[in-house]
Design a protein around this nucleic acid. Structure first.
Length: 428
RNA sequence: GCCGCUGUGGUGUAGCCUGGCUAGCAUAGGGGCCUGUGGAGCCCUCAGCGUGGGUUCAAAUCCCACCGGCGGCCCCA
């Protein structure tokens, strides 16, 4: 094939597009229920904006280039940066600001299972509050969205970076920023790899005996009582946030939550509560993740603002939907209008337009094929009803309505046929 | 950016090791049998060796490079 796509890109074909629409609809409905307004930040940013959060190392992982006037620009690699930039630069906004976005992103990674260089995310962020209520809200949001999509076996793993930081400082004596960040990244791998593998991988960067202590700490998980019980021996004080959060989630009816201290997220800008949502398919990875990142508004010039949010991978969710949710796609009833004879052509198109005006989905023959071929085409497209119009019908201003399930036909006036179709398609 | 596997019509594949006739089969698409009545069957038809070089009388087949796909690392969703 000569006209290949660039590596890691793909066309979103009708079957996947339909699932994507389901996710988008569910997301928008959830935004409305929770009072999030929707927007889409610019796909292209100045490179320095994108680097603000992660430093210039991000340059290797994104699409970055010079535009025609030599400006250094890059395609967005997440929605958080653009949304935060927008919120910070709009001083008139009333807090809390709750915004959601559903849009495509680009990352220059090697493609893998469920991962492309162009992909979609949904994203819900709350700016302003620094208290845990906002964290509870975004976790509830993600949970509600997955419920709405019909994914029943979602579990949400919740951690708290501050708890881990306190542990590192008090119990191991590690306070040095870069080392903490490195150890966090190592801890984050605990869901995917064994402690032994992680220790080997990081042996040159972190003293294994120290890292091992952290990994043991990170293995603490379970419901809040269990976790508090195991944490007693460490004498940590920053457990109050998690206790409060769990209570709020309980009252919001969010089920399947697990405290999991290995959840710290790979990115350095998270500052507090962090969480990830999984299905029982481990290989798929997290369907959504998020947490508190108060540092980012501060970098953009608003240290007074708190920020917390959640983002979900649409492609992974599509894979999960394909596996778990029976394809109960509710199809619109389809009416196919066939005709015989050139002189009937314009009347057939008029009828199609009339049906559509009545809110009935109608297709009309566009290729002037034989009636046999038209019926064959209607059948292959799974049409529910076919309208047949020939010179006789044109003369008497009547339509033949054929039910494709049982093959029965009725001849009626145009108005009667429309009424009948409305009745027939309403009960579905 | 790195590593492994892989690439034959739209899709699924045979042929490749051991170079040699018009690249075979199935399915999907178009048409006919059947000019105003669909789903079956039969027949016809469109369409392919990822790209570029090299070796050779001769390359889908052997060699090299690049490109794409799948999966892993890194990072993350």
């Amino acid at each position: 094939m000569k006209f290949n796509l660039p590596r890691g890109l793909r066309d979103i074909e009708p079957a996947d597009f339909e699932l994507m629409e389901r996710i988008r609809d569910a997301f928008i409905q959830t935004c409305k229920l929770f009072g999030f307004s929707l927007m889409e930040p610019s796909p292209l940013e100045m490179l320095e904006t994108l680097e603000a959060k992660s430093g210039s190392s991000i340059r290797d992982e994104i699409y970055a280039f010079k535009d025609k006037s030599g400006r250094e620009v890059g395609l967005r690699f997440d929605l958080t940066v653009g949304l935060t930039r927008w919120v910070v630069s709009n001083r008139a906004l009333q807090f809390p600001v709750k915004i959601g976005s559903f849009a495509g992103l680009w990352r220059y990674d090697e493609p893998q299972y469920g991962r492309y260089r162009w992909f979609y995310q949904w994203d819900a962020e709350i700016f302003g509050p620094t208290n845990v209520d906002a964290d509870a809200e975004v976790i509830d949001f993600a949970y509600s969205l997955f419920r709405r999509l019909g994914l029943e076996d979602i579990s949400i793993h919740i951690g708290d970076r501050r708890l881990v930081e306190e542990y590192l400082e008090k119990n191991i004596g590690v306070k040095d920023e870069p080392l903490v960040a490195e150890m966090m990244r190592a801890l984050d791998k605990l869901g995917k790899k064994t402690a032994q593998e992680i220790l080997e991988e990081y042996s040159s960067k972190v003293e294994p005996s120290i890292l091992n202590q952290l990994l043991e700490f990170g293995k603490i998980s379970g419901d809040i009582e269990e976790v508090l019980n195991r944490l007693k021996e460490y004498h940590l004080t920053s457990t109050t946030t998690l206790i409060d959060l769990v209570d709020l989630l309980k009252h919001r009816g969010v089920k399947n939550t697990v405290i999991d201290l290995s959840i710290v997220r790979g990115l350095d800008y998270y500052t507090g509560v962090v969480f990830e949502a999984f299905t029982n398919d481990q290989a798929l990875g997290a369907l959504a993740g998020g947490g508190r990142y108060d540092i980012l508004p501060a970098i953009f010039g608003r240290p007074d603002l708190g920020a917390t949010g959640v983002a979900g991978g649409v492609d992974r969710t599509i894979l999960a939907l394909k596996k778990e949710v029976a394809s109960t796609t509710q199809r619109e009833p389809l009416i196919y209008i066939t005709y015989v004879g050139k002189e009937v052509r314009s009347f057939a198109q008029h009828i199609a337009s009339t049906l559509r005006g009545e809110g009935l989905p109608a297709e009309v023959e566009l290729m002037e094929r034989s009636l046999r071929k038209q019926l064959e085409a209607a059948s292959k497209r799974n049409s529910d009803y076919v309208i047949i119009i020939g010179p006789k019908e044109l003369a008497s201003n009547r339509l033949i309505l054929k039910n494709m399930k049982d093959g029965r036909e009725e001849v009626r006036s145009v108005a009667e046929t429309i009424d009948l179709l409305k009745q027939l398609t309403k009960t579905r």
